[in-house]
């Protein structure tokens, strides 16, 4: 199977423990085998659907509306410093 769980977990930012990794790898392998059956369908010339609605051109006017969301958001943030969200340092490892 082409599915390499380490690489996908890295992309998804999931730090899987080894037991969990094995189980998920097995599950996902089976699911991918299942969905693979679509390959057999002829979809030549079929347009992909990304929206079920045939809507287009939905805009808003360029108007400013104030919001007090930040105050509430900072109040419940895992870590805030004054008017800012705070995150740990970015440590570079080469």
């Amino acid at each position: 199977m082409e599915f390499k769980i380490e690489r996908v977990a890295e992309l998804a930012r999931l730090n899987l423990k080894s037991e969990e990794k094995q189980k998920l790898e097995k599950d996902l392998g089976a699911i991918l085998d299942y969905v693979k059956k679509l390959e057999a369908l002829d979809t030549k010339g079929v347009e992909p659907t990304s929206h079920v609605l045939n809507m287009e051109n939905v805009f808003r006017a360029d108007e400013v509306k104030p919001s007090d969301a930040a105050e509430k958001a900072l109040e419940h943030a895992p870590h805030a410093d004054g008017r800012f969200f705070k995150v740990p340092k970015i440590v570079h490892r080469d």
């Binding site: 400013v64 509306k65 969301a69 930040a70 958001a73 900072l74 008017r83």
Partner: peptide
């Protein structure tokens, strides 16, 4: 609909969408 004005106080031009 948040303002694009430069130099505002930290996170004051934010709403649920741009947050």
């Amino acid at each position: 609909s948040c303002s694009t004005e430069f130099g505002a106080e930290g996170n004051s031009h934010t709403c649920p969408v741009c947050l």
